[in-house]
C-alpha cells in the first residue's frame, strides 16, 4: 500500500534565497521518520517539497528529484494536484474549514475526487474519524461546525480529513506544537496506529516526541545565518539519540545549542 520515497540532490529556493541544499534520503514504507533541527534550518521547507506545497508560495521553486515508488514527483507532466492527493499533509495549527461541519470537513477531500454515493461517503467519514480516534467524541454532532472542537480534536479532525482520501504518505508539520500534553499524547498514539497504513513523516521541535514515535530521524542544520539548510545526519532514531556519529547532532540533542 505505502511506497518508498527517494529524494536525491534536492535544493529549494524562496526567490533567490536558497533555503535547503543537496538533500538526499530514502524513506521506507510504513515507517515514521522525524525531522529535527533548530528553527529556520529548512525542515518544514523540505517537508513541503515532498507534496509540492513549497511551490505555492510566490517565487518558490525546487530543483532535484523526489521519487515516489520510482516515479519523479517533479517529472514533466506530473500534476501537483495529483501529487497532493497521494501525499496528505497535516499542518502546525489545526485548520479545519470553518464554514464546514465536522462531517463536511472529513468529506472535503472526497468531494474533489468525483461523485460518490451518500452511503459510501458516510462509511469513509466514519472510518476516517475512527482512524483518527475522534469518532466516539463527535459521532453525535457530525453536523456541528468543525471549528467548535477543542484544539486537539481539531487537529485529529484534520488528520481524519487527510487520511479520508487514502494517501500513500502523511506529512505532519509540527502537528502537536499548538496542543496541550494530553492532546499531544493522543496524536502520538494515533501516529503509531497509522503507521501500519501510511508512511509518516513528521517535523518536530520536541525531541522526546521524535524519540518516542519515530523509527528514523534526520537532523537538519545550517552552517550559518543566510546559509541553506542541510541534512547533517540521518539514522535509526535509537542510534541518533544514543550514539550519533556527528558532533553537531550530539550537541543539538543534548541541548548544547539550538
Amino acid at each position: 500500500m505505502s511506497q518508498q520515497i527517494q529524494v536525491s540532490g534536492l535544493d529549494a529556493y524562496y526567490g533567490r534565497h536558497k533555503a535547503i541544499e543537496d538533500i538526499s534520503m530514502t524513506i521506507e514504507p510504513n515507517t515514521i521518520t522525524a525531522f529535527i533541527g533548530p528553527s529556520g534550518c529548512g525542515k518544514s521547507t523540505f517537508l513541503r517539497t515532498l507534496n509540492r506545497m513549497h511551490e505555492v508560495i510566490p517565487g518558490a521553486r525546487v530543483e532535484g528529484k523526489v521519487l515516489l515508488d520510482g516515479e519523479d514527483l517533479y517529472g514533466p507532466g506530473v500534476e501537483p494536484v495529483s501529487v497532493r492527493r497521494m501525499i496528505g499533509m497535516v499542518f502546525q495549527r489545526p485548520n479545519p474549514f470553518p464554514t464546514m461541519s465536522i462531517y463536511e470537513n472529513v468529506a472535503a477531500g472526497l468531494r474533489l475526487n468525483g461523485r460518490r454515493s451518500k452511503s459510501e461517503v458516510d462509511g469513509i467519514v466514519e472510518t476516517s474519524l475512527k482512524g483518527a480516534n475522534l469518532w466516539n467524541e463527535v459521532k453525535d454532532r457530525l453536523g456541528k461546525p468543525g471549528a467548535g472542537l477543542s484544539g486537539g480534536q481539531q487537529q485529529r479532525l484534520c488528520i481524519a480529513r487527510a487520511i479520508a482520501v487514502r494517501p500513500e504518505v502523511l506529512l505532519m508539520d509540527e502537528p502537536c506544537s499548538a496542543l496541550d500534553p494530553i492532546s499531544t499524547l493522543a496524536i502520538e498514539d494515533l501516529m503509531a496506529e497509522l503507521k501500519s497504513k501510511f508512511t509518516i513523516i513528521i517535523v518536530t521541535h520536541n525531541m522526546q516526541q521524535a524519540a518516542r514515535v519515530s523509527d528514523r530521524t534526520a537532523f537538519f542544520n545550517l552552517a550559518g545565518q543566510g546559509q541553506p539548510g542541510r541534512v547533517i545526519e540521518m539514522d535509526d532514531t535509537s542510534r541518533i539519540f544514543t550514539n550519533p556519529s556527528q558532533k553537531a547532532t550530539e550537541d543539538y540533542i543534548t541541548g548544547r545549542f539550538g
Binding site: V83, F91, N95, L112, A162
Partner: peptide, 9 residues
C-alpha cells in the same frame, strides 16, 4: 484554509 484545501489536492 487555502493551504488545507491545496494539500487535499
Amino acid at each position: 484554509h487555502e493551504e488545507a484545501a491545496l494539500a487535499l489536492g
